[in-house]
Design a protein around this nucleic acid. Sequence first.
RNA 1: GGCCCCAUCGUCUAGAGGCCUAGGACACCAGGUUCUCAUCCUGGUAACUCCGGUUCGAAUCCGGAUGGGGUCACCA
Length: 476
Amino acid sequence: MTVRTRMAPSPTGEYHVGHIATLLKNYALAKKHGGSFILRIEDTDQERQVEGAVEKILSVIKAYGLDWDEGPIKGGPFAPYVQSERLDLYQKYAQSLVTQGAAYHCFCSKQRLEELRTNQVAQKTRPRYDRQCLHLTPAEVGAKLAAGQSSVIRLKVPWGQVVSFNDLIRGQINFQSEDVDDQVLLKSDGYPTYHLAVVVDDHLMEISHVLRGEEWISSTPKHILLYQAFGWQPPIYAHIPVFLNPDGKGKMSKRKGTVSAQSFLDQGYLPEAMLNFFMILGWTPADQREILSLDEYIQEFDPARISPKSVVFDLKKLAWLNGIYIRRLPITQLAQRLQPFLPADFPKDKLESILPLVAERLTTLSEIENLTEFFYREITVQAQDLIGKQSTQIVKLQLQTTVAALENLADWSVVSLETAIRQLQEQADWKKRDYFMLLRIAVTGKTATPPLFETMMVLNKPLVLSRLQLALTCLQ
RNA sequence: GGCCCCAUCGUCUAGAGGCCUAGGACACCAGGUUCUCAUCCUGGUAACUCCGGUUCGAAUCCGGAUGGGGUCACCA
């Protein structure tokens, strides 16, 4: 069997990390079996349509290092891949369902449906359509249609049967058909609902496996019923567990933090680290490895090994992974990735010398500014921090000695800096720790920095000396 | 609330009846390396939700309870 998977984003807003995570699984499954991964745009909701959303979605997918074989821009044998361009298809199939008695026209106003629902909720019964229009005679339907009355087409759910499907992750799942509502298939504006469009397109595009979010489980019986009505073979389903908020409560949501796929990249998470994180969240390869490249993942991926339980989006683990990927990057590549995160006043010519000093201290790319600003911005130093437990006189003296020694230093290299400073420390009654910290604060304004000599080396002689002088004036 | 899904350390998991005194990773704590921070190394705390059953034997199978999650639109 040819494996064909798909992801079908809806251009109604930001692309969510959960979307990329399931897209990755669809992509990997297709690649693993030498099949195709299809991208389809589900723009069937005219009201929630967001301008420019399609372009954004396509660019995020690429920014994550993923791609599609058939879909927008690329086209393919089943084009078009945009649902708004396939309207006649859905209308034709909906009509055929009506003709065969598997669906019916409904003329109920939105107002009536709303009242119906509020009554049902008040009476604590399950809100559902009451099938009023199912009982219309063909003549009545014809008359209303002829009169131009607005209508939708609803699925006529056959009661009294068990609707079941096999989920790759959970096994067989059963529903009682009475529990399934007479879903609207074709809206009054002539657009299909998701349920009709997804079934028609997945069938026509010969999709073999549907890996989608767990939130779709409860509407799957509608889809199964549609496949049955059309006499088509349903795809193989795997419903992927949802991401829970980092605090462990509820489906990951905007209210509790960042959910947009793009924003993680903007914060300086590497796409390969993000993908790796999505891979191991709720899944492990047989050997329990946690660091995996895309290719390795494609090799190992098996949807049946996905854990059936919802998973907490653990930001700490993501940070750890991101740190690993940053440290693995060769300096020149890190420099490239860092470009969008460098502040305007960052001295580009010093990049290559500064980076090795901070690379292992970076957990996200956006931290670069904080970690390096003392290299190229004025610093502020508090006298109190310089003095610490010493007396002002002793600190002053030691700084003066240091300035004198460094001024005479002919060769401004790490080695000679280290030799000189260690010598000063041995000559004075200073602990190494205290002396180095004094210099660190004087020269950088911070208590946590890269190693002292390397830092001084990169800062340059004049700057180091002027900062030491500044520290001295600070002690007046 | 109805329906559906799920249930091993704080988190992600390994575990397919005896290899489990329950393993790994992140986080956390302690120690080592070290001029600080970080990296790196070593060690530690920490879990089978509960109650019944099946079995010589259960984290593993079955039932129930409890808890968590999803879903109930002319949204996807």
